[in-house]
Structure formats: structure tokens, C-alpha cells
């Protein structure tokens, strides 16, 4: 599997560290209920198919990426920097 970093180009999967579902970026507001915090921390959609998750370009530029990919076929559809600047 290879991932394309918007800043560095296509790189070996070993340069990246996986964090988890991209929904983790949407932290509950500071005043959210304990249940909302627990859901955010623990519960997952965990789809078999298309998903968006977070990867850190650890052995590269150090950027956080949102990768859109398929959890069944391992096909990569696209990558973007967390917080914007879309690239393929």
C-alpha cells in the first residue's frame, strides 16, 4: 500500500502512522456531556468499505492527513491535509 502525501507525493506506507477514524478531528465542544466525550473516544462506525481515517506522515513532512480509502480492497481514493488544501 502506498499513500500520496499532498506535500511530499506518493510514499511507502511505512512512512505513515495510523491514528484512527477521521471523525476524531471533530472533538466535542468543551461543555459537551460525558456521554458525548465517551462516544467520541470509544465508538466507531467501523465501515466495511469506504472510510476516511487519519494518518500522520511521521517519516516525512510531519503533516496529518485524511485518507479516503476502502477497508475491504485497500484501494486509496484520495488524501488531503487535515484542515484543507485538497490534493489527489
Amino acid at each position: 500500500m502506498r499513500l500520496s502525501c499532498p506535500l511530499c507525493g506518493e510514499r511507502d506506507r511505512r512512512e505513515f502512522t495510523y491514528q484512527g477514524a477521521a471523525a476524531m478531528v471533530d472533538r466535542p465542544a468543551p461543555g459537551a456531556t460525558t456521554e458525548q466525550w465517551s462516544d467520541w473516544l470509544h465508538l466507531r462506525d467501523n465501515p466495511a468499505g469506504r472510510t476516511r481515517d487519519l494518518w500522520y506522515h511521521e517519516a516525512g513532512c510531519g503533516a496529518w492527513l485524511v485518507v479516503e480509502r476502502d477497508t475491504v480492497t485497500h484501494e486509496i481514493f484520495g488524501t488531503a491535509l487535515v484542515g484543507g488544501d485538497h490534493a489527489d
Binding site: R13, N46, A48, D53, W55, T71, V72, T73, H74
Partner: peptide, 13 residues
Amino acid sequence: DFYASYAARGNLP
């Protein structure tokens, strides 16, 4: 393999 997957096969790293 450290990333979410439903493929019953892994990667080379």
C-alpha cells in the same frame, strides 16, 4: 497491520 481493514490479508511491511 495497524490500520482498520476488512481484507483477510495483510500488507508486506
